[in-house]
Amino acid sequence: MPRAIRGVLVECDPSIKSIIVKIDSEEHAYVVEELDDQTLVIQENMLPLLKARLDDALKETQQPADDSGSD
């Protein structure tokens, strides 16, 4: 019998996927299965937390090194 695993199929850009994999590598709490470059299966109950972590990671990337502020 094949196995059926509950989860959320996430389809995104390879850049986003690599960030998700990086977040998961710290705790191994999110990713159920990596499927390909832009597809993975995530634990359903962990999705909101993952989205929050992803938003944080993206914010960090957005902020330039200098925060001298605008004029």
Binding site: G7, L9, D13, E33
Partner: peptide, 15 residues
């Protein structure tokens, strides 16, 4: 890119 993320709940069949 963030908005492009699509999430679909369901089941993965394997093995």
């Amino acid at each position: 890119e963030n908005e492009r993320m699509k999430a679909t709940p369901g089941f993965l069949f394997k093995e």
